Simulated assay, not measured.
Amino acid sequence: MIGEIDRVVVVVPARNEERLLPRCLAALDRAVSRLDVPVRVQLVLDACTDGSAKVVSTVEVLTVSERNVGAARRRGFEHAGAACDARTWFATTDADSEVEESWLSAQLEYARRGFEVVAGMVAVRQWDGHSAQTRRMYERQYRSHGPEGHGHLHGAALGFRADAYWGIGGFRALRTGEDVDLVVRMLAGGARIAWAEDVRVTTSARRRGRAPHGFAEHLRKLGRDEPQEVS
């Protein structure tokens, strides 16, 4: 049956996320509770030097030394889902993010409708350290949609069918942009994507992110681009 899913694997890469990781895992636990199929949450601790490992008690943990978010996501899926097929749904989020309770159940609804990729949306949790103008610029740009949907690709809010993922070789070892690279290759291979506004996470707005040219850099750039007042 097209779109039938009987297993879910969620991969969460983390590098020195001791402070935010408990909230991430608690939110995932609430999302998992909405499903009636087995779910494996695979945490990938990548070169952590803080206490991230000490806050984990209920999920599978893989420790690596990649110092690379694309490689960490890849290792997570290789470890947890190497034998998975078209009846398995893969999802990934970030350790500084909190998924909504319907985050996984909504993805499976899209899967049952025949979508191989689900691209969700991201909201910022708190804007501490950023100006009100930066927030307005971000929210205005983010609400601007194309004819096919919102068009945003975030590793923090992404899902895909396992066979479609393996069919294009999975995540590449990119320090940034690994999410966009993966989806572009999946679409080139014929995958059908849902630009899902009901698959949402909230994430941190910290000024110094883990990935170069990632979300934190995007927010800093918006701040640099703010119009300057003339005195």
Rank of each mutant, 00 (worst) to 15 (best):
Y165C: 10
T203W: 03
K221Q: 11
G190E: 00
C48A: 10
V180P: 01
M1R: 06
M137Y: 10
Q141A: 14
R19S: 12
E18I: 02
H130M: 14
E18L: 01
R136H: 14
V180C: 04
V10L: 08
L45E: 02
P13L: 07
I193A: 15
R206Q: 13
E116F: 05
D6V: 08
L174N: 04
H152A: 10
G155L: 09
S144G: 12
G167I: 09
L108W: 01
A162I: 14
E66Y: 07
L28Y: 01
R87W: 04
H154W: 12
S131R: 07
E217H: 02
E98G: 01
E217K: 00
A132P: 11
V8W: 04
D29K: 02
D163G: 06
Y142M: 14
R200S: 09
E139K: 02
R40P: 05
S97L: 05
S144Y: 12
Q133T: 14
G190A: 02
I2K: 05
V32K: 04
G170L: 00
R192Y: 02
G209V: 08
R207Q: 14
W103A: 13
R19D: 15
S33F: 04
Y165I: 10
V56E: 04
P22N: 02
R143H: 04
G189S: 13
C84L: 11
V117G: 06
G120E: 04
D85V: 07
A80C: 15
V44A: 14
A205Q: 07
R34L: 12
S65V: 09
G81C: 10
A80K: 12
R75G: 03
A164Q: 08
D46L: 00
D36M: 00
Y110L: 14
A191L: 02
T93E: 01
V44S: 11
D198L: 08
T93D: 03
D225Y: 09
A196T: 12
T58A: 14
T93W: 00
D46S: 01
L187T: 05
H213S: 15
S204R: 10
A188S: 03
V61I: 10
A111S: 11
G169M: 00
R15S: 10
A82V: 11
H79F: 08
A14D: 06
A14Q: 08
R136Y: 11
S231K: 09
D29M: 00
M1K: 06
R224C: 07
T93Y: 01
G114C: 06
E197S: 15
V124H: 01
A205N: 10
G70F: 06
V59H: 07
T176Q: 02
R7Y: 06
Y142Q: 14
T63L: 03
D46K: 00
D181T: 05
V64N: 10
L108M: 12
V59F: 05
A80T: 14
A123S: 15
V44M: 13
D96E: 15
F215K: 06
P13E: 08
H79K: 12
H152G: 07
E4Q: 09
G70P: 07
G159Y: 03
S65Q: 12
Q126R: 08
S231M: 03
D29H: 01
V183Q: 15
R220C: 12
R143T: 06
H218V: 07
Y138C: 15
R30D: 13
T202H: 00
Y138K: 13
G114V: 07
F77I: 05
G155S: 13
